[in-house]
């Protein structure tokens, strides 16, 4: 049995959750004051995910970089690996908001998309 302490971010109350795990199975969540807190605790301890936001180089555009995000949350442990992939890319202007930059970000099945447009210089 292993316990993990985390702060719930579902609402501003910020309950201190204690999640008890047996291997990768959640045995119990305590400290939460609502149902949503329990769900958050389970998700955070079994398969935590985050949306990655960053920038990608652009050539020939009115701006030297364009902002990007993973279209959905990707596994939290994958963030730095994903950053390496993001940093290798160079786009060519123009690009439009929502353009797919990487189809499948590090095997997560989630695409990386632009969150801004850049015009051609």
């Amino acid at each position: 049995m292993e316990t993990k302490n985390l702060t719930c971010i579902v609402c501003p109350v910020g309950c201190s959750l204690t999640v008890t795990l047996d291997g990768d199975k959640v045995v119990s969540v305590t400290g939460n004051t609502c149902k949503r807190g329990e769900a958050y605790g389970i998700a955070e301890c079994t398969a935590p995910t985050r949306v990655l936001t960053s920038t990608v180089r652009v050539e020939g555009g009115t701006a030297p970089f364009v902002s990007v995000k993973s279209k959905e949350a990707i596994p939290k442990g994958m963030l730095f690996e994903a950053m390496e992939a993001v940093n290798k890319i160079t786009l060519h202007a123009p690009c439009a908001i929502g353009d797919v930059v990487i189809e499948d970000l590090c095997g997560s099945g989630i695409p990386l998309v632009t969150t801004k447009g850049v015009k051609k210089r």
Partner: peptide
């Protein structure tokens, strides 16, 4: 503000600042 977390109340989805 290229991070996400904007628009949950207004649009019911998590957008980045530029979006």
């Amino acid at each position: 503000c290229i991070h996400n977390g904007f628009g949950l109340h207004r649009f019911g989805e998590e957008l980045t600042g530029p979006e």
